[in-house]
Amino acid sequence: MRGLCGIGKNISKGSHGVRCNIKPIGKSDPVYSLEFIILNEISDNLPINSLPVEQFSKFSQLPLADPNFHLSKPVDILLGADIYGFLITGNKLLSDPDQPVALETIFGWIITGRVKTSSVSLSVNSYFLTSYASLDQSLQRFWELEDVPQSSTLSSDEKLAEEHFL
């Protein structure tokens, strides 16, 4: 069984691996032979909520790798950083850091970056737990167990043996 370690050191167990060849649709090359791990689910739907396509009108003339990228749907495949650099052509369209960016790949253009979500309701869960009292108690108990007692209560036989050796 294979696994992936992700954000927060979460480990996802895969059922098995498979080797596939990937290439752009309608082209004979380039072809990349990659190994994939089969998971029940890669992540939640992305984007979390569908986004208004109007936000991306400046990219409407581009042949997109995923024409429905703005719709919330399951992630089908996740390509790693080991192949990413080979997929990007280097062409990009951007305006400022608060706006989406279009990057050209061998599969078509992808849209990435910051998106205004004022009209979209997002659900964000954040969990944080701190328990210093428990840690202090655990450390105190550890040192109590490791501490050599200053005085001991000896049985009468043990006292006689100790006096004999002294």
Rank of each mutant, 00 (worst) to 15 (best):
S123R: 11
E41A: 07
D29L: 10
N68A: 11
R141V: 07
F128K: 08
T105V: 01
F59C: 04
N49D: 10
I42S: 01
S72G: 02
P63Y: 04
L154V: 05
G113D: 02
E144A: 08
S119P: 04
I88Y: 11
I110L: 05
W143C: 14
R141F: 04
L71A: 00
K9L: 15
E146W: 05
E162Y: 04
F56N: 00
P100D: 01
V75W: 00
K9G: 15
S151P: 01
S123K: 14
I83S: 00
S123Y: 07
L166R: 13
Q150K: 15
N125P: 04
D157S: 15
P100I: 04
I83Q: 03
G85D: 06
L129G: 07
E144D: 10
E54R: 06
L103W: 03
S28I: 13
F59S: 02
L78C: 01
P74M: 00
T153M: 11
L129M: 07
G80Q: 03
G17F: 14
N68R: 08
D44L: 07
L94T: 08
E144I: 03
P63D: 09
N45E: 05
E104W: 00
S121L: 09
H16A: 10
L64C: 01
K9W: 14
E146N: 12
D66C: 04
S123W: 07
S43R: 12
L51Q: 00
V18L: 11
S50N: 00
L103A: 06
K27C: 13
S72A: 06
Q61P: 04
F36Y: 09
F36G: 01
E104M: 03
E35L: 06
N40W: 01
D147C: 13
D136V: 13
I22K: 06
V18T: 12
D76G: 09
D66A: 05
K116F: 06
E54N: 10
G6F: 04
S12A: 12
N49H: 06
T117K: 05
L71C: 03
K58P: 01
